[in-house]
Amino acid sequence: MRAARTAYPLKWRIMDTLEGVAAAIWPARFRRATPYLMLLPAVLLVGLLVLGLIQIADASLRTLDTTTFQFSDNYSIANFRRALTEPLFLVVAQRSLIAALIVTTVTLVFAFPYAYLMVRTRSPGLRKFLLIALFLPFFIGQVVRAYGWLIILGNQGMVNEALGLVGVAPMRLIYNYPAVLFGLVQYMLPFAVLMLAPALTAIPEELEAAAGSLGASWVRTFIHVVLPLARPGFIGAGVVVLTLSLTDFAVPAILGGGSQDFIANAIYDQFFRTSDQGLGATLALMLVALGSILVGLVFALFGAGTLAMGRSRA
């Protein structure tokens, strides 16, 4: 008996105990519920965001009394009226939306050839190089990247110093709208390429060869074969870039220098500069709604593309 016990390894005994405990608290007849149990922690964790949204909704309905700096106990929609009527917020919203559309278009134009070359190249070395050049900036935060642009484009930055050497007067290259757009495109490129690449991999190369052998030029092959088949990738990439650039904070703050605020910057200012939590919460809620409507619209029109999670992927 004793010999048999020592022959039974410790690991087995631990596993047996664990199996016993697991069977006691989660008997086999609960098996059908197991996937829900596995999903529970994630659902609870994401629940924090839902709670947060409820808090924001609550705060958005309370107005700030500017004489006492107290928030009202009763609800009113005064904040929403202010958010919709004050011209400043309209300007900011317009600026962010137009920027998001421009950034999405430009990013997709550059991301597509990058993803295409990366997927189609025959050289493993080139593929690896393109992947590394993509991931390195992807893993470096926005702040550091924006700081790099400040060094390059700043008033005493590299470009202006170089121009100075050939006798050109310094130009103002940052703290304007194009600088913010440029910074955003750079930030979004890796996201877009990574969403496009799987969709391009799914397109058999023979299709392109077939189109070519039937006499289509590469431009026609792209327009009629590659681009339509890459649609799930364009949807995924487009949605991600559109929402991320619409709601960005760091790039407008650093490269816009306070003159090019986006919606997120306006919300931050309401909370931390003006201390009007109610109005800030209202703006945040409207941004959440705007983002969801945009995402919902794209999904309803085109499906979830490469963004789908789980089994139901084609």
Binding site: L49, L51, L53, I56, T247, I263, A264, Y268, G291
Partner: peptide
């Protein structure tokens, strides 16, 4: 889908 500023403030 919730913008970062919304999640962060919530």
């Amino acid at each position: 889908t919730i913008p970062l500023i919304g999640s962060g403030i919530g």
